[in-house]
């Protein structure tokens, strides 16, 4: 605590003499935490190592060093899993605390190397056959197993994105809109809705049957975005399908609104408000444009007026919802 505040509080009679002395002693000698610095270094290290080794395999494919690199990756991977397994608590369906940040990233490195390994075997020799999209199916199974066995949120996120990749779309935050050609193929939109439904069910089941209940947020988080963006793209791009995708969006928003209220999670309420705002705005302006013939320039003015009024309304709704869940400031 700052010295001036200690004096002020002591003068106001809010601190006992021992507390004042202890606060003054503490303000001189504070522990300095290197937690985030080390975590960032570990993250970058694992990123470089897995990326670099993955590239090394293919760069040296016809040389003698090739076998050695493969063997090295296999050994390193085995060492990671051995270490991770040695230092983890026995498996339960409850949440287990990880020993430390270092262990978290050993597990992650092990998973990434293992997948580089089997992707290589698959690509080179088609060890697992070619049906079922096995290039992404097998890594997905491995990732889900590791996520549950080691209780690791990062590996779970990888597993979920792999599940979506197996079905044909990319759902990581940066790629959700840029890599999927939602406007050109209706199949992709329906896949997104399907993935959203499956992930929602997975999140619901985790909580309901108490199987790693703390994973449910991660499932829901991917699900709400994939489903809502899929439904919105359906509304925007599929002519004549408005009556199909609008109710789908409304149903999802209703589900996630009540979920947010039940979990006391402001995050989900915010997401429903934002997606509802986009959907409603599209519908209103769509209607106005349909009435273009009779309104002419009025369409532009009415649209701008609608956007002003609706953004004020959105702000008021956010304030209201925040008050409703006041005790809960986090996710």
């Amino acid at each position: 605590m700052r010295k001036n505040f200690i004096h002020q509080l002591a003068d106001e009679g809010l601190l006992s003499e021992t507390e004042r002395l202890r606060l003054e002693a503490q303000s001189g000698s504070r522990l300095f935490s290197l937690h985030w610095e080390l975590k960032t270094m570990l993250y970058l290290g694992v990123l470089l190592l897995s990326g670099g080794l993955g590239t090394l395999i293919y760069k040296n494919i016809d040389t003698i060093g090739h076998q050695a690199i493969l063997a090295g990756i296999g050994l390193l991977c085995a060492a990671c899993f051995w270490y991770a397994n040695k230092h983890t608590a026995p498996f339960t369906w409850e949440k287990t605390e990880s020993p430390n940040a270092w262990w978290d990233y050993v597990v992650l490195l092990g998973c990434l190397l293992f997948i580089s390994f089997i992707t290589y075997l698959q690509g080179q020799y088609e060890v697992f056959g070619t049906r079922l999209g096995s290039a992404t199916f097998i890594p997905m199974v491995v990732l889900f197993f590791c996520a549950y066995y080691f209780d690791h949120l990062g590996v779970l996120s990888l597993a979920i994105t792999n599940f979506a990749a197996w079905l044909g779309i990319a759902i990581t935050p940066m790629h959700l809109l840029s890599s999927n050609a939602f406007g050109t193929e209706r199949r992709l939109i329906d896949t997104a809705l399907l993935i959203g439904l499956v992930l929602t069910a997975a999140g619901f089941a985790s909580g309901r049957f108490n199987r790693k209940a703390h994973f449910s947020f991660t499932y829901y988080n991917f699900a709400v975005h994939v489903f809502c963006i899929g439904a919105l793209c359906g509304m925007f791009f599929e002519d004549g399908m408005l009556l199909l995708y609008t109710p789908a969006l409304a149903a999802a928003l209703a589900f996630y609104y009540f979920l947010g209220v039940r979990l006391r999670s402001f995050y989900f309420l915010l997401m429903t408000v934002i997606y509802a705002y986009i959907g409603l705005g599209y519908l209103v302006i769509f209607m106005l444009i349909l009435a273009m013939d009779s309104l002419e320039m009025g369409v532009l003015y009415l649209s701008i007026l609608y956007l002003i009024v609706s953004s004020i309304a959105m702000a008021r709704i956010l304030i209201h919802l925040n008050r409703k869940l006041k005790s809960h400031a986090d996710l």
Binding site: T136, A165, G168, M174, H175, S179
Partner: peptide, 17 residues
């Protein structure tokens, strides 16, 4: 952290690539 890992460390080919 989980999201960043999923975004940057995707070890298998993603859809669209």
């Amino acid at each position: 952290e989980g999201l960043i890992i999923a975004e940057t460390m995707q070890p298998t080919p993603q859809a669209g690539e």
